[in-house]
Design a protein around this nucleic acid. Structure first.
Lengths: 226, 226
DNA sequence: GTCTATAAACTGATAGAC
DNA sequence: GTCTATCAGTTTATAGAC
């Protein structure tokens, strides 16, 4: 029996160094992401970390407490990546560079902690009222962080002014959030992906005179305009 | 008892004219959206349409069959709105206008059938393998529809060429999908919203010389560039 | 810290009356 | 078409042994 445990723990790899408690959170995030909160049973979480269901109650008071921690982690890892990059920029950095740094941090945070961030995004609209209300403050803080960045840039003329900051933030962060659902590292590096997404966010899908499509500016290959 | 039924049916409004079967689908879509598939019980669906749980099995073979129809409806209503608008355009319509029509159709379809479309987006990643596999063809057909539109435009130079069609489609459709999670009609009309979203999708968040921010082009109010 | 055993409630689905 | 009654299985959470 203890032999079985050691074997499984070894196959679980270096994740187990933090102990059962963190293992439960990681397993829960993955299951919440792929099945939803209500559909995930404590027995499934327990089995994933090679423990019996009853043992979980030594580390957590309830299933809802596990949910609380998974939700908060999903936002905090992203916020940390964004804040780190923005704090590293010089104070006089132009808006485009600052927003690029925020986009990069958001994407890196999302894609490197996919189970926590994807679980957060997927299940937030489906959880009970209690956890939803408790988690709201963490979400609001992150939204506020973006709003301040964007509002400052819009005030300086570094951001389009015909759309409100809140709509810009909801659109951009929403679009970034969704990339975790379809980004595939087999189709290219994360760095290249970040550059592409940044380009679309800043300049849209319209054709631009970039190095890779300059040839399109020859009149005969241009689409007819009206 | 039959009095109670009539009273409830009247309060349910004109939705009931299609009969219990459609009522079940509408109620299921709403519950799936807000609680997830597994968390929604047949008893909850039954209660929402003022019927007993056992009665649902007269109209549907299983809970999974209800899921199948809710999922398919969520994509089909959107695809119909998009196709209707594109088919109404003249054959020589420029790419910008065609893509604008697709964006408008997608947003109208999503926001006017919010429970079906939001349920689809929210729970697709969390449902059992059977329904997921069955639904895949409907999703692929819609993705293909966008890909053909975008590929044709990119070939004509009507779309930026430094990002692949599939990434452009995934980003744009993903961003549009997410708007159903935050669009609030109290903050403005649907028409104005569509114009704003189209503007961001085509030209990005960078400042532009539009009528509403021309004053920003005065040199002294412009952000310092480097 | 983890286990077993169990309580109390709920689940999808079926059978048969009306 | 809808109802009631019920089956067999599952759920979260608890109690107490080790």
């Amino acid at each position: 029996m203890s032999i079985d445990r050691k074997k499984k723990a070894a196959s679980t790899g270096p994740q187990s160094i933090d102990g059962t408690r963190s293992d439960v959170l990681r397993a829960a995030a993955k299951l919440f992401r792929n099945q939803g909160y209500a559909a995930t049973t404590l027995r499934q979480i327990a089995e994933a970390v090679d423990v019996k269901a009853g043992s979980i109650y030594y580390h957590f008071d309830s299933k809802e407490q596990i949910l609380d921690e998974v939700l908060d982690t999903g936002i905090r890892v992203v916020m940390n990546e964004v804040r780190t990059r923005l704090d590293a920029l010089p104070a006089e950095a132009p808006c485009r560079r600052r927003i690029e740094a925020a986009i990069e941090g958001h994407l890196v945070g999302m894609l490197q902690h996919g189970d926590f961030t994807s679980a957060n995004i997927r299940i937030y609209g489906q959880i009970p009222a209690g956890p939803k209300k408790r988690h709201r403050a963490v979400r609001a803080a992150y939204a506020n962080y973006w709003d301040q960045l964007l509002a400052e840039c819009q005030g300086k003329g570094g951001l389009r002014a015909d759309v409100s900051v809140s709509v810009l933030r909801l659109f951009v962060v929403g679009a970034l959030n969704w990339t975790v659902e379809w980004f595939d590292p087999r189709h290219g590096s994360l760095e290249a992906f970040i550059r592409q997404i940044s380009a679309i966010v800043f300049d849209g899908i319209s054709p631009h005179a970039t190095a890779s499509n300059l040839h399109r500016l020859r009149p005969d290959s241009r689409e007819q305009r009206r």
